[in-house]
């Protein structure tokens, strides 16, 4: 088969470009720790009262854990608990692991203006770890259609400085 000289050149350029794109992602993963959600664990969405989601909120991590705080968030039609009625409050300079699930339909958990963004799927627990450097209040919203009042599902994530963080508010 005859391939025009220019076309051969173009194919070469294309393949190099594709390799660069893939490399960018790999570098993001390994060097900048930009990760995506993976498979963690499943739960029975009809029996969440037997899990930590029955008492959602911020907890101190078990001693020896690789993180400092664990945050359990229940996303349901049409609120985040915690998040909507009162903000999710976490301290700066601490490793924080989020666990999010839903007892009803799919939701999204988007911390506006950040790359904290995950699907919330009944039966699955979305888990990710993060850390905040500066105190700031972020908006929180549901970005997956979840029913007629999807657009009212919102909340806040409040990062307070470590010294002002009140451990008494933690879920025991």
């Amino acid at each position: 088969m005859h391939i025009h000289r220019f076309e051969r050149f173009w194919i070469g350029v294309s393949l190099v470009a594709i390799a660069i794109f893939i490399a960018t992602v790999v570098i993001g993963f390994s060097v900048y720790d930009l990760r995506v959600i993976g498979a963690e664990k499943t739960v029975d969405p009809q029996n969440l009262q037997e899990t930590k989601f029955a008492d959602p909120g911020v907890r101190k991590a078990e001693p020896g854990s690789e993180v400092d705080y664990e945050v359990y968030v229940m996303s349901r039609q049409f609120m985040f608990n915690p998040g909507t009625a009162e903000p999710i409050t976490v301290p700066t300079d601490a490793k924080i692991r989020f666990h999010i699930t839903s007892p009803d339909v799919l939701h999204g958990f988007e911390v506006v203006g950040t790359n904290l963004n995950t699907m919330v799927i009944p039966g699955q627990v979305a888990t990710f770890t993060t850390r905040f450097d500066t105190p700031k209040t972020y908006g929180l919203l549901c970005n997956e259609y979840c029913g007629a009042a999807h657009h009212v599902m919102e909340g806040r994530l409040k990062v307070v400085s470590k010294s002002q963080f009140n451990e008494k508010q933690l879920v025991q």
Binding site: Q77, F78, M79, A149, V152
Partner: peptide, 17 residues
């Protein structure tokens, strides 16, 4: 009698299904 007229603005009203 004390009569006060006010205007309530509702912001985010939590919704439940």
């Amino acid at each position: 009698t004390l009569d006060i007229k006010r205007h309530f603005e509702f912001g985010h009203v939590p919704a439940r299904y």
